[in-house]
Every structure is written in structure tokens, then in C-alpha cells.
């Protein structure tokens, strides 16, 4: 066998493996999308219909107009926005401190941010439920957003610390020599350089908050603050939601995730893997 045929076979095998893995990853999404475009009689059939014979948007109209799905999405958007805002303000400052300032207890605090991820969500949910009920934050978007910071803020801090570590300290030193204060150097020199990292980390947190199910199930009880994952799950249980409608709801709710991820994946991947490869 010549090297060329060998390489050709090699590449063919690689593409075969790639297609298998890509198919496994992508097929459920594709199938849900196809189902959302099918008419009911094309879904419930005795022989499987793969490609819809007639494309319909009826399912999208149904989930949007004949359920409280828009309200659920709006609630999720509010909760997500609050979560991201909290993380952006407190997390950015914290990550900057952990990256730039040297003080006793720094390592311990960093480790503790990592360790809190080990705590079982169920163990946190129960006291949070009682706590939120006492301070009147149960069944509110703010309360749910605060609960989300429990597991998203530590991740935010770790990812942002990686991005801050990537900015050479010389730049700040130069600004300081030019008479800038420490806070001045931070705001005017360092922050503009990590904007793309900040956006990627914020998107990561936003997706986490948008998708979250367990805390929302426990901490929201009414349509006033219930988020879409809980609402969709309850609809499936209560109304025997038809598959087409359910698929349309799924596609609508993952659309923002897919778009944001496609736009930001490069920077997000960098943030997620930075710490892992170094350590």
C-alpha cells in the first residue's frame, strides 16, 4: 500500500467516525426540529415519516398562543438578566482581586469557591426554600436569581480570573507610573482588555440560568415567576402536550442558547479550558 492510499483510507475512517459522533450529537436536535414542523397526522403514524410531507407552523402558533409560554419565557428572561447582573458586578470585582491582589487567605478563598460546587443542590435547596419564604423572596425572580448565583458565581469568578490572568501586569504598572490610581488602572486599562472574556463568561452564566430546572421547580410556585423549563415540564404532565407542540416549545426555548453559543463558543471554550490545562 502506498502512503497516499493509506492516508486516503485514514481520512475516510476519520470522516466516518466524525459523522457518527456528529450524528449522535446533532440528530436529536434535528429530529425535534423536524417534528416541530410536522402536522399531527405525520407524527402519529403506523410507519415512520422522516421528512415532513407538509411543513406547518401550526405547532409554533399553538404553543405561543394557546399556552402561557410567552409569560414563562419572559419570567426566565428576567431571572436570567438579574443573575447575569449580579455575577457581572460582584464576580468581576472578585475575580480581579483574586488575579491581581496578593493578600493572606487568597488561595483558601479560591479553593472554597471550587469546593462549594461539591455541595449537593438538594441540600442547599431545602434551607433556601425556608430562608426565601421567611424573607419573602420565595416565588420571585429576584429570589430565584440569588439562588442561581450559588452555583454560577463561583464558576464566573474562576473563568474571569483566567481572563484577567491573561492580561500582562505591565500594562497596569505603566498606567500607575502615569499617575493612575489602582481603581483607575483597573477600570480604564484592564477592563477594556477583558471585554470579550467578560461577554463569554456572562453568556455562559446566562445559559446556565436560562436552562436551570431543579431550583426553579422548588423555589417558584406560581405563574408570576415560574420559568419556562418548569412550565414546559408541568404542561407535559397536565395537558398531555402533543409532541409537535412540545417540540416547537423546545425549539423556541433553545434558539437563544444555540445562537449565543454559536456566536460566543470560541471565547467560551477558551475560558472553560484555560484553568483545566494549566493546572
Amino acid at each position: 500500500m502506498t502512503t497516499r492510499t493509506r492516508r486516503w483510507i485514514n481520512n475516510a475512517l476519520l470522516y466516518l467516525a466524525a459523522t457518527a459522533i456528529g450524528g449522535f450529537a446533532g440528530f436529536p436536535i434535528l429530529w425535534t426540529f423536524l417534528t416541530s414542523l410536522k402536522v399531527e397526522s405525520d407524527i402519529i403514524t403506523s410507519t415512520m415519516i422522516y421528512i415532513p410531507r407538509r411543513i406547518t407552523f401550526e405547532n409554533y402558533v399553538a404553543i405561543w398562543e394557546r399556552s402561557n409560554f410567552p409569560t414563562l419565557l419572559a419570567n426566565s428572561a428576567v431571572t436570567t438578566a438579574i443573575t447575569v447582573a449580579i455575577c457581572l458586578v460582584t464576580g468581576t470585582l472578585g475575580a480581579y482581586a483574586l488575579s491581581r491582589c496578593r493578600f493572606p487567605g487568597r488561595r483558601e478563598i479560591m479553593m472554597s469557591y471550587l469546593v462549594v460546587r461539591m455541595f449537593p443542590a438538594v441540600m442547599i435547596i431545602i434551607p433556601l426554600f425556608i430562608l426565601m419564604r421567611e424573607v419573602g423572596l420565595l416565588d420571585s425572580s429576584l429570589g430565584l436569581a440569588l439562588a442561581y448565583t450559588a452555583f454560577l458565581l463561583p464558576v464566573f469568578v474562576w473563568m474571569m480570573k483566567g481572563f484577567f490572568d491573561g492580561v500582562p501586569p505591565d500594562l497596569e504598572d505603566a498606567a500607575r507610573i502615569d499617575g493612575a490610581s489602582r481603581v483607575g488602572a483597573m477600570v480604564r486599562v484592564v477592563l477594556p482588555l477583558v471585554v470579550s472574556g467578560l461577554v463569554a463568561t456572562a453568556v455562559f452564566v446566562a445559559i446556565g440560568a436560562w436552562n436551570e430546572f431543579l431550583f426553579a421547580l422548588m423555589l417558584t410556585t406560581s405563574t408570576g415567576s415560574r420559568t419556562w423549563p418548569v412550565g414546559l415540564q408541568l404542561m407535559v404532565g397536565e395537558f398531555q402536550l402533543p409532541w409537535g407542540t412540545l417540540s416547537a416549545g423546545g425549539i423556541i426555548s433553545i434558539a437563544p442558547v444555540v445562537v449565543l453559543f454559536a456566536l460566543m463558543q470560541r471565547a467560551m471554550v477558551r475560558g472553560l479550558t484555560a484553568g483545566a490545562v494549566k493546572g
Binding site: 449580579i86 458586578v89 460582584t90 464576580g91 470585582l93 472578585g94 480581579y96 482581586a97 483574586l98 491581581r100 491582589c101 496578593r102 493578600f103 487568597r106 478563598i109 472554597s112 469557591y113 462549594v116 455541595f119 441540600m123 442547599i124 431545602i126 434551607p127 433556601l128 425556608i130 430562608l131 440569588l146 439562588a147 448565583t149 450559588a150 452555583f151 458565581l153 463561583p154 469568578v157 490610581s181 489602582r182 481603581v183 483607575g184 483597573m186
Partner: peptide
């Protein structure tokens, strides 16, 4: 920001939140 406690001040908000929504509920 020129003081020695600057790092702690920056860390305080996130530390407070983590303590309030993770550590305290866990202990409870």
C-alpha cells in the same frame, strides 16, 4: 484603592453572596 485592604473590598460582594446562598444554607 491604594489602601492595603483593597483586595478584600473587591472580594467582599462575591464572598458575601457565596456565604449567604451556599455556605449558610449548607450548614443549616
Amino acid at each position: 484603592s491604594e489602601g492595603r485592604a483593597w483586595g478584600y473590598y473587591l472580594l467582599l460582594p462575591s464572598l458575601f453572596l457565596v456565604l449567604a446562598v451556599v455556605l449558610y444554607p449548607t450548614l443549616w
